[in-house]
Simulated scan of single mutants.
Amino acid sequence: MSKYKIYTMSFASVYPLYISKAEKKGHTKSEVDEIIHWLTGYTQADVEEHLKKQTDFETFFKAAPFLNPSRTLIKGVICGVRVEDIKEPTMQEIRYLDKLIDELAKGKSMDKILRK
């Protein structure tokens, strides 16, 4: 899949997949939401509005009220690429979120996931 297609995918189309991945491993939608809030600064009402509007990923991240500065502490490989080495900003934000959801599914504690 090209970068362009990922950017234009709606956040709403991927959000249920994040929740499903977490729930399959015994985690909850509220934990997924907590990760999204921490990463982007969105409230739950904001997230619901983006879901309703079918906002694409590029807009979702560009409109984020507060991209958490601690997100740069997220390291590791997602989809075969080291997240810290991704040069394109929107792609890096998408992969940060993917990595955090992976960490949740793998059983990492929320304190570690949220870099506390």
Rank of each mutant, 00 (worst) to 15 (best):
M9C: 07
G76C: 04
D33L: 14
L104T: 03
D102A: 09
L67E: 06
I78Y: 14
A45V: 09
V32K: 07
P89W: 02
F60N: 02
F61L: 08
L114F: 06
S20V: 00
Q54L: 12
I19N: 04
Y4A: 14
E103Y: 11
I101T: 06
P89C: 07
I35H: 05
S20W: 07
P65R: 04
I35Q: 05
D33M: 08
A22M: 05
P16C: 09
K24G: 12
E23S: 13
L51P: 00
E34L: 10
I6S: 13
R115V: 13
D46S: 10
T43D: 10
D85S: 13
G76T: 04
K99P: 00
Y7N: 05
F66Q: 13
K108N: 08
K62I: 08
T90S: 07
L100Q: 09
M91R: 08
L17I: 14
D102H: 06
F66W: 10
R95V: 03
I86N: 01
C79I: 01
R95E: 10
I74P: 01
K25I: 02
S109K: 13
A22L: 05
D56C: 13
F61H: 04
T90N: 10
G41V: 08
V47Q: 05
K75T: 14
Y7W: 10
Q54D: 09
R71K: 15
D98K: 07
K62A: 11
A63L: 12
S70V: 04
H37F: 06
P69W: 03
D56V: 04
F66K: 15
L67C: 00
